[in-house]
Computed example of a mutant assay.
Amino acid sequence: MHSTQHLVGDVMTGRVVALRRDATFKDIVKAVRQWKVSALPVVEQGNRVVGVVSEADLLRKEELRDVDVHADRRTRLERMSELAKADAVTAEELMTAPAVTVRVDATLAQAARIMAIAKVKRLPVVGDEDVLLGIVSRSDLLKVFERDDEDIAEEIRREIVDRLFPAPLEPVQVEVQDGVVKLSGRIRDTTLVPVATRLVRGVEGVVDVDCALMGPPRRPELDPDLAETTRRPWGAGTIT
């Protein structure tokens, strides 16, 4: 079936503020505050992404300001990397490397999964050779839920209903309200109901699915109160 899934490149912000390796601590703080972002990519020659500096990296300096590392050797060993960042003065010393990035041609679902695993709010978007192309944030990934209800319904009718149920017993109705899809009608093969539900859930902008599709009507049962009769072939009789 034809896919209309948006890619990261469709929703990313193309205007990116990036840091060089030698950017100073105070310059990084100014950039974070000025651009109101929680993290900045660090690039080298050719705009290739080599790391990311986040607010958490910057806050290490304040967080560990009063830690007495000489009092507890175990604490010092466990927090060695954090303590190093507390003493950092450049982007190269502060950054987390390698950077967690996402490809420009990745789907929004793939980007959301990377964010969840890495526990980050923004991802640098890269192309070939990790060249920086943009930034995608959590709010960018939510843009698909602004999609118009009728636009969602039309895609479901065209790409799913018409292909799965070309000859339904009754027309399959597709209704969408605030992203919630309701399917109703009678179809010939009810084994396709779970397939339809799964495909509809995969349509961008769909919040939930209420599947009320039914199979063929059941044949009316004989009245159990009627007495059974024995039928004989025409012309048959009893010889006495």
Rank of each mutant, 00 (worst) to 15 (best):
V29E: 15
T101Y: 04
L164M: 10
R122L: 08
G237H: 12
Q34C: 09
D22R: 09
T4E: 12
R158G: 00
Q110M: 11
K36A: 12
L222Q: 14
V131Y: 03
K85P: 07
G215A: 05
V206A: 12
V126Q: 03
E204A: 03
I239P: 08
Q173P: 00
L226M: 11
S184L: 04
T96F: 01
R74G: 07
L169P: 04
M214N: 06
P124C: 01
R113G: 09
R122N: 10
Q34W: 10
G46S: 07
V11F: 10
V125P: 02
D130I: 01
I114A: 08
Q173G: 09
K121N: 05
G9Q: 13
D151L: 11
T96P: 02
E150S: 06
V52A: 02
G215W: 10
G127A: 04
V102S: 01
V209Y: 08
R103D: 12
T96H: 01
P98C: 02
L226K: 13
I160F: 12
P194F: 10
D210Q: 13
R232K: 12
V29K: 11
V120C: 10
G9T: 07
T191K: 15
V161S: 01
L59I: 15
A118G: 01
A39K: 05
T90M: 12
E221D: 09
L7A: 08
R73H: 14
E175I: 02
V32W: 05
A91I: 13
